[in-house]
Amino acid sequence: MESIRNIYCVGRNYRLHAEELGNEVPESPLVFSKPTHALVVARGQEIVLPRGRGEIHYEAEFVIHIDKPYEEGMRAEDLVDRMALGIDFTLRDVQSRLKEKGHPWLLAKGFPNSAIVTEFQRFPGTDVCKKTDFSLLKNGECVQRGNISEMLFDLDTMIGFCAVHFGLGAGDLIFTGTPAGVGSIADGDHLQLLWGQQVLGECKIKLA
């Protein structure tokens, strides 16, 4: 995969997901990051995740790729050239302990292979994307379904927030948040990411 600079992730961007985990609904984007070592493209292969650190949860997301440096006032249509679907894997038990202590989430979010993406597709524009749902199938069963129209903070808001607070430029990715339905994975699970009815990427999970 070509060089990716920064991986920004937006937490609690779907109201029902925030509520299912008992979290407050944020008043501004809740952003964390993952290291580039977390990134892997799902091309049907076996992907290794850590065993023995508690439950690992899947979080399916719509992902955007930034094509150029941000300038004030730019919107998604000005900056985004491609889109993908992704999974933000989370060590949920580890995250819960970190949250109790008020510590950053990196240990729960940044481990190798914790940021899966499909192959990237041309970004057709925000309005067009709102016409198509994305979903995650686990062993053939749909466990998550969402639409970017349901996000608390839209693409333009997230782009502006990331640019102002962290900087935003060519090669950056934004994982835009997950809808309700997150749950745990097990060794041998087969995961498929769908855009409408089209499978954009898939993988098999190996815990080791």
Rank of each mutant, 00 (worst) to 15 (best):
H17E: 10
P26K: 03
G22N: 03
Q45R: 10
K68F: 10
V40C: 13
E20V: 04
Y70I: 01
N23C: 12
P50G: 14
I47E: 01
E55V: 08
R15Q: 14
R43W: 08
E61I: 01
E61Q: 01
F32P: 00
Y8V: 08
L16Q: 15
L49G: 01
Y58C: 02
D67Y: 08
H65L: 12
V80F: 05
V40N: 11
H57E: 11
R51V: 09
L16Y: 12
K68M: 06
L49W: 00
G73W: 08
I64Q: 02
A60Y: 07
D78S: 03
R53H: 15
P69I: 06
I64K: 02
C9D: 01
R51N: 12
E46R: 13
R15E: 15
C9L: 00
L79D: 10
R5C: 09
H17W: 03
I66W: 08
G44A: 03
G22K: 02
Y14S: 07
I7L: 15
V40L: 13
V63W: 07
A38C: 08
I56A: 04
R75M: 11
Y70F: 04
Y8F: 15
V48L: 12
D78C: 05
E24M: 08
E71G: 08
R43S: 14
R75S: 13
A42K: 02
M74Y: 14
S3F: 15
V25D: 05
V10T: 09
D78Y: 05
P50E: 14
N6F: 05
A42N: 02
P29Q: 01
N23F: 12
P26S: 08
M74S: 10
G44D: 03
C9W: 00
E19N: 10
R12Y: 08
P35I: 09
A38T: 05
F62V: 06
I47H: 01
G11A: 01
F32E: 04
R43L: 13
A60C: 13
A18I: 08
H37D: 15
S33P: 03
T36K: 10
Y70N: 02
R75K: 15
R53T: 12
F62H: 03
V48D: 13
Y14W: 07
V80W: 04
I56F: 01
P35C: 07
K34I: 05
I4K: 02
G22L: 01
K34S: 03
E24D: 11
Q45I: 13
P29E: 03
L16F: 11
Y14I: 07
E61C: 03
N23M: 11
I7M: 13
E27N: 15
C9S: 00
A76R: 08
E77S: 09
R51D: 12
V25R: 01
A18V: 09
R53G: 11
E55T: 09
G52V: 13
E55A: 13
A38N: 06
K34L: 06
E71M: 10
E55D: 14
V48M: 12
Y14F: 11
E55Y: 02
I66L: 12
H17C: 05
E24N: 09
Q45P: 12
P69Q: 04
L21V: 10
P35F: 11
I56H: 00
L49I: 07
